[in-house]
Write a protein that binds this DNA or RNA. Sequence first.
DNA 1: TTGAAAGCGATACCAC
DNA 2: GTGGTATCGCTTTCAA
Lengths: 342, 342
Amino acid sequence: MNKNNTTTDKHRSSAAITLDNVAKIAGVSAITVSRAINTPDKVAPETLKKVREAIDKTGYVPNLLAGGLASRSSKLIAAIVPSIANLVYSSTIRLFSKSLSKAGYQVILGDSGYPEVLEEELVRTILSRRPDGIFLTGVDHSPSCRNLLLAANIPIVETWDLTPSPLDIVVGFNHMDVGHAVAKFILSKKYNKVGFVTANDARALLRQRSTLEILSQSGVSDIYATTVPAPTSLEYGRIGAKQIIEEGFDSGVIFCTSDTLAQGVLAEIQSRNISIPDTIAVIGFGDQVFAAHTYPALTTVRIDRERIGQEAADALLARIQKRPVKNKIIDIGFSIIEREST
Amino acid sequence: MNKNNTTTDKHRSSAAITLDNVAKIAGVSAITVSRAINTPDKVAPETLKKVREAIDKTGYVPNLLAGGLASRSSKLIAAIVPSIANLVYSSTIRLFSKSLSKAGYQVILGDSGYPEVLEEELVRTILSRRPDGIFLTGVDHSPSCRNLLLAANIPIVETWDLTPSPLDIVVGFNHMDVGHAVAKFILSKKYNKVGFVTANDARALLRQRSTLEILSQSGVSDIYATTVPAPTSLEYGRIGAKQIIEEGFDSGVIFCTSDTLAQGVLAEIQSRNISIPDTIAVIGFGDQVFAAHTYPALTTVRIDRERIGQEAADALLARIQKRPVKNKIIDIGFSIIEREST
DNA sequence: TTGAAAGCGATACCAC
DNA sequence: GTGGTATCGCTTTCAA
């Protein structure tokens, strides 16, 4: 007794419809209703029909808090991104969520872009929901974070970067390679002056440094560089461009560590009536898609963001379902999309 | 017995640390540990210290599935948006999440932008997590959706639109008013030809219709309109602009139902070497922020997206904490930001 | 201030 | 194919 929601409940009262209510109405046991919902083929067609009618009649909505607790599987996947308000990450997450929802999982998001919230705190909060897997952005985590993550004993996928020693699985690309490839591109075009508008972000700085490395090795020394705060915005692109132009940069190429910055840089150059790309060319990063369509003057480094989401989802699902994981290190690469003509 | 995680467990085994483990180590009862975590001021300082040490030593992470089940409060707030990959919504959600996380709530997102997933299905899935409140985008819901939502018996906030009969609380602005205001602006500038690039979305279409209504009343009849698929993109902006220009639109103003579309329209006009805004002026919508900074030629309708998130969070929290809700209908208004000079 | 016992609503295990 | 019973890990209630 006390299983039905009558007012005679000794301790708590509840108006919500439960599995037991449905079971009683259908004239079967609770576990049968559970099976009818989760594994319908293990239930006789007639029983199934009765149960479905009872569910419809009552408007029953399963309680996944209870289900997750009992089955030790929350059907929740956590994802930690620097900012959902950044298209670069949100488009990845969108495909990630979509793939997972097909398999019956929901994604719960954590935003690591607030400096006032410690990453460890965020991970802790997220882990308290007992996700069945976790998606991380980047491969740098504090030791206490690593411990928390490892102790959770769930599949982990790190993304947007590569490391020889992932926590579990990693899906990304090599930022140093990007820098080197951009440097080679710049050299091939024989630009004699090179500007940098770089976001203050570990991976962006790495891309800039590696570009610079090759350039200086090749004797290109007319460099104008500025660092702007993350997250990137068109506004900071304008500001950055303004700075290096005022420092004396008047021709050549500007490498921006994001397409958003690049757009701002383009706007600043346009507003000064400087010809693009003849006098100043611009290179972006990250493939905001529209770049290629609307700004033919912009060369950019294309990253297949959807693929990151897809591969991350696939790898996580494989792990959860204990299927073999093909690769623990998935390099999705990148490509330089050259747009010079107008 | 069977409360500790030994291998003698009759039914299930578990490696995870539980409240009981911590309690045993701290030499107190489980409920005391629970209090130490949730209501530390109801626990003696000495006891608190012992408990905290035990938590640190074990690396205990509370299980909110269990906590939520027992307390009938998941500390989860659901939000349904058309697309997280759309800055307009993601910036609202970001502030919404931030405000709620300060109060100890986490946001779980549902993406309603996939036509193959029924809204009702999505709401059902979300409700199975037993959120303590729900954020909806728009005020149009199918009857079955309304029933589900109402049956859940939790605070609801509808956003991005207004209605005299909200499900619970509504935070938004009047799209018809926007259309009328834009029409008046257009009339005041005495444009004789008006183009429309409109997304195929209920609220966008409403803004367009209401603009048109006033214009035709005032005798402006040289109209060129095209509808492009949602979600909006720069690419569709270009396509839309191309269409109406090819239909014969050669001067005047184009009203785009989003700033993203407006950017594409601007790019198309620029590529044709048409002067902006002298020959063709462009009006956007939604305040992508950068519009004002980088495209001085673009007039736009500014919506305080962050405020929507803030007000929605505040209202929901008030309801949950059973504090009085000041207004059930919150009109955040809008403003036209005119940028004509270059 | 602390604790014992009884749930919360579901699923796992084992029988039938 | 179906059901009984014992949990899952936590909080509520009530009592000390």
